[in-house]
C-alpha cells in the first residue's frame, strides 16, 4: 500500500483511538448536534469498553463461522461429500433471505437476552459469505493443477492442504473479510436485545433523539469496519505474497 493511501488510514486510526480513550475531548465537535442541553458524548458506559466488547463479539462469531464454513466447503467439494453439494448451495442461497434482525429476534427469546442471541445471529449470518467463497475458490482450482499433484504422488489430504487451500486462499479470505465487516455492522443491532456493544450508543441516541450519540456510535463502527477490512487486506497480501500465491 502506498503512503498516499496509508496516510488517511493512519489519521483515521489515530482519531479513532483518541476518541475512544478521551471522548470528552471531542465534546465541542458533537455539541452542535444536541439540543435542550443534552450531553454531547455518551457517558453511560466507557466507549472503549463498548468498542472492545463489540469487537470481541465480532471476533468470536467470525472465527466460529470461518471454521465451520471452511470445513463445510471442503467437505462438500470432496467426493465423499458431493451428495450434499446441491443442497448446501441451495441453503446458502436461501439463508441470505433471512434478515439478521429476524435471526436475532427469534434467537433472543429462545436463548435469553444479551450476548448469546447476538453471537448466534452473527455466527449464522457470517457462515454464508465464507462458505460461498470457499466453494467457488476450491472449485476454481484448475483441474490440471490437481491432476499434476495427483501425478506427483500427493494423497487427498496433501493435495487439499498443499495445493487446493493455498490456491483458494485469496477467495476464502475475501469471504472472511466480508463476514467480518457485515458482523461489525450487524452487531449494533444486537443492542436491541441488550448485547453489550456500540449499538447501545446508537439506540440511546434514537431513544433520546440525540443525533450526537447516533453519529458517534455510527462513526466509530463505520471507521472500525473500514480500518479492519483494510488491515485484513494488507495482512493477507503480505502473507500470500510470501507464499507466492498472489503476485
Amino acid at each position: 500500500m502506498s503512503t498516499m493511501a496509508l496516510a488517511p488510514r493512519v489519521v483515521a486510526l489515530v482519531l479513532l483511538l483518541a476518541f475512544l480513550l478521551a471522548p470528552q475531548f471531542f465534546a465541542p465537535v458533537f455539541a452542535p448536534l444536541t439540543h435542550n442541553g443534552a450531553p454531547p458524548i455518551y457517558t453511560q458506559a466507557s466507549l472503549l469498553d463498548l468498542a472492545i466488547a463489540h469487537l470481541e463479539l465480532v471476533a468470536l462469531a467470525t472465527v466460529g463461522s470461518a471454521v465451520v464454513a471452511i470445513a463445510l466447503g471442503v467437505l462438500v467439494t470432496r467426493r465423499a461429500g458431493a451428495e450434499f453439494l446441491p443442497l448446501s448451495r441451495a441453503i446458502v442461497n436461501i439463508g441470505q433471505t433471512f434478515p439478521p434482525v429476524a435471526v436475532l429476534a427469534v434467537a433472543a427469546p429462545l436463548v435469553g437476552f444479551g450476548q448469546a442471541p447476538t453471537l448466534i445471529a452473527l455466527f449464522v449470518y457470517g457462515l454464508l459469505p465464507i462458505f460461498e467463497n470457499t466453494l467457488s475458490g476450491l472449485q476454481q482450482v484448475s483441474a490440471a493443477v490437481v491432476e499434476s499433484a495427483k501425478g506427483a504422488g500427493m494423497g487427498g489430504l496433501q493435495r487439499l492442504v498443499k495445493i487446493e487451500l493455498p490456491l483458494a486462499a485469496p477467495q476464502i479470505l475475501e469471504g472472511v473479510r466480508l463476514s467480518t465487516v457485515i458482523a461489525i455492522g450487524t452487531a449494533t443491532i444486537g443492542s436491541t436485545v441488550a448485547a453489550k456493544g456500540l449499538g447501545e450508543v446508537i439506540i440511546a441516541g434514537l431513544l433520546s433523539d440525540n443525533t450526537a450519540f447516533i453519529l458517534q456510535g455510527g462513526l466509530v463502527v463505520g471507521v472500525m469496519a473500514v480500518l479492519i477490512y483494510d488491515a485484513m487486506t494488507a495482512l493477507e497480501r503480505i502473507v500470500l505474497r510470501r507464499r507466492g500465491v498472489r503476485r
Binding site: G185, T211, L215, V226
Partner: peptide, 13 residues
C-alpha cells in the same frame, strides 16, 4: 459499512 441503525438515525436530523 455504516451500520444500518446508525444510517437510519443519522438521516433523521
Amino acid at each position: 459499512t455504516i451500520p444500518s441503525i446508525a444510517l437510519f438515525g443519522l438521516l433523521m436530523g
